[in-house]
């Protein structure tokens, strides 16, 4: 028998899982804010859209593989589901690019209150687009059971749902890729240069228009990927699912520092773990706890834990 881990560890692990999902949403929000200077209120709806799209894609993709009953077919099943999640998120790339090019681009120079108004309008429109596409009833991708057939218990030595472990590994991979992308790759450096000084970047031949489109599409991609990772788990995709993660990602990026990737990572894990501990210890404060943390950080250290204005680190 493998040791059954105690409730403290379970709640911490659940918190980490939640934190990784939050990180995927908040990372998109924070790079969009860091580079474009826009606080995207429609970000939660991009996350919801990813959850809905993966429902359709997964249903199609898993038709090709055997239902998971032994470890080998379960692993194949898991790989197919992950690829489906990536495909679902990839569908959000053109969506994000379209939104940036058509709606967001004309308002960079305007007051921030118009930027908020515009993205709020997009949020409303997205809700109806999803209602039109998938109806009003919650959808369950139905892959949770299959994913849990993947034998992780033998590997990590404790019994804990395989899906959560996979989601956490994916979260780490996303963080690692983002750090590599902004640190090492040429495109990433161009984006950072644009964030630091738009005029200078233009002067050395960077097309800021295309950079911005790319950044917004990337943000949409990761929000959608986060939604996809949630939707293939035990949770359903429903119309209002975008609101809470949106507000919580504000908390995350404020705690971590606006525009900071590392900050979003630490902030997301912090918020995730704290909210799950609150559910476990004192459920009444579950909703308030993350905001209390945010208040404390804002009042004590307004620039956040890793705050650097307009620079991605």
């Amino acid at each position: 028998m493998y040791p059954v881990i105690d409730s403290f560890a379970v709640h911490t692990l659940n918190g980490l899982w939640y934190g990784f999902i939050l990180f995927m949403i908040a990372s998109g929000l924070t790079i969009i804010f860091g580079v474009l200077g826009i606080l995207n209120l429609a970000h939660g709806e991009l996350y919801a859209l990813g959850a809905f799209v993966v429902f359709s894609v997964v249903g199609y993709a898993t038709g090709f593989v055997a239902s998971p009953d032994d470890p080998v077919s379960a692993v194949i099943f898991g790989v197919v589901v992950l690829i489906a999640a990536l495909v679902a998120a990839a569908i959000l790339l053109p969506v994000g690019a379209f939104i940036e090019a058509v709606f967001v681009r004309p308002i960079y120079e305007r007051d921030e209150v118009y930027q908020l108004l515009l993205t709020y309008a997009l949020l409303l429109i997205f809700i109806d687009v999803m209602k039109f596409g998938w109806g009003t009833s919650p959808l369950d991708a139905g892959t949770y059971g299959g994913l849990n057939q993947i034998p992780t218990t033998e590997v990590v030595g404790v019994s804990y749902p395989s899906y959560n472990i996979i989601a956490m590994i994916v979260g780490v991979a996303v963080f690692a890729w983002l750090v590599w992308f902004f640190d090492q790759s040429k495109t990433g450096r161009i984006i950072r240069a644009t964030a630091i000084n738009r005029d200078m970047a233009t002067a050395i031949g960077v097309s800021t228009d295309r950079t911005f489109t790319l950044v917004f599409a990337m943000g949409a991609f990761f929000a959608g990927f986060g939604g996809a990772m949630v939707s293939i788990g035990p949770q359903t995709a429903f119309l209002e699912m975008g609101l809470d993660p949106l507000v919580l990602s504000f908390v995350v990026i404020v705690v971590g520092g606006l525009g900071s990737l590392k900050g979003a990572f630490v902030g997301a894990l912090l918020v995730g773990v704290i909210s799950r501990w609150a559910i476990w210890l004192y459920p009444a404060v579950e909703l308030a706890a993350p905001f209390a943390v945010m208040l404390l950080i804002l009042l004590v250290k307004p620039e956040g834990l890793f705050g650097t204005w307009g620079e991605i680190e």
Binding site: L122, L123, I125, D128
Partner: peptide, 16 residues
């Protein structure tokens, strides 16, 4: 049935 989008479009019109 679709009551969010019309308001969204009005807000878009206001912005632009």
């Amino acid at each position: 049935n679709y009551y969010h989008a019309p308001i969204g479009i009005i807000l878009l019109a206001i912005v632009f």
